[in-house]
């Protein structure tokens, strides 16, 4: 899919703070010098096509009571990664689940982000997942400090 210059302008403006006015799309359309109906159609297309993964409010999970989040890394046999990844993705406490490459100094190939109210809860969740997939070689990596957390700005380079 080739994005037009106007598409890129729309994407750029949707990465900024969305207006908190009664007619936010009309406000954006005016800035972009396009019709509001055209803007609404393009946004709907971006969502249908998956270019926009989610449209709405990004919430800080610490602020809503998910104090602990662990990156759980798993060492899974190569032949089982697809099957295991799908099962792990089915847990509602898991927000992200990816397969990643391994190196001699790094043997964990499945990554899940697990969210809980406490470290103990994260450990319980990881144990529950381990039981369901039969994988026992895993570690919970907690973030002790956040140095940066931003949204990517596309088409701004």
């Amino acid at each position: 899919m080739v994005l037009t210059e106007i598409d890129k302008k729309i994407i750029r403006i949707l990465q900024e703070d969305f207006p908190l006015s009664p007619n936010p799309y009309q406000d954006l359309a005016k800035k972009l010098e396009i019709e509001e109906t055209f803007l609404l159609k393009r946004i709907e297309f971006f969502i249908d096509d998956g270019i926009i993964r989610r449209f709405g409010a990004a919430v800080k999970h610490r602020e809503i009571g998910y104090e602990a989040n662990a990156m759980v890394v798993w060492q899974v046999e190569d032949t089982r990664t697809k099957e295991v990844g799908k099962i792990m993705a089915g847990f509602e406490e898991v927000s992200h689940c990816y397969e990643r490459p391994t190196y001699p100094q790094w043997q964990y190939n499945l990554f899940t982000m697990v969210h809980g109210k406490s470290k103990e809860e994260c450990e319980e969740i990881a144990k529950k997942i381990a039981h369901s997939v039969g994988v026992w070689d895993y570690r919970l990596l907690y973030s002790s400090q956040e140095f940066k957390k931003t949204s990517m700005r596309y088409f701004c380079e």
Binding site: D17, L20, I51, F55, V59, K60
Partner: peptide
């Protein structure tokens, strides 16, 4: 609108807008 403004001010809402799929772009 006022409630959303408040939630942004207190930091509960990090951002309102589109979250894009980097691969699709």
């Amino acid at each position: 609108i006022e409630r959303i403004k408040g939630l942004k001010k207190t930091g509960v809402i990090r951002r309102l807008g589109g979250i894009f799929d980097s691969r699709k772009l």
